[in-house]
Amino acid sequence: MKAIIYDKESKEEKLILQEVQKPLPSENEILVKVHSTAVNAADYRSMKMGLIPKNKIFGADVAGTVEVIGENVKNFSVGDEVVGDLSAHGFGGFAQYVPANESAWVLKPQSISFDMAASVPMSSVTALQALRLGNVQPGQKVLICGSGGGVGTFAVQLAKSL
């Protein structure tokens, strides 16, 4: 498969498109054929801090189709459309296929495109958890500094409509 491999030895561009072996899922994992992956600050911040995923492939917010399931997988079947935040499961989204524990994934609603689904996990969950941590109550006045980015565009909408 094609994947963007992080090569820390490379003098110029460290993110390089390479042909690597297509992975197989372990017993609790599903292998997802990736359609869309969002980029996040978590990708470049981890890179800068030298926190490199085991397989050297970044990319956390993934939407795709289940291609193979591990033998202990209970909640997904081949062909299911899924989306997940893989930042706690080794990243791997900048690739044609990614295996990750089934606990990382949820079913993608049919009416939402893969691109749209991939844009949701990290940023929106961050926005929601920020509003909760701030214990916002109905009708309260909220100021959102930096509203135009991934987290901000979700925070504005969640603060108003949730």
Partner: peptide
């Protein structure tokens, strides 16, 4: 922030209902 499939599911539902629109 911590990844949460419960939170993700809830927000996907809001996106499905068009109460939240992802901006790309």
């Amino acid at each position: 922030a911590k990844p949460s499939t419960a939170d993700l599911q809830m927000i996907l539902q809001l996106v499905e209902q068009k109460k939240v629109i992802p901006v790309i």
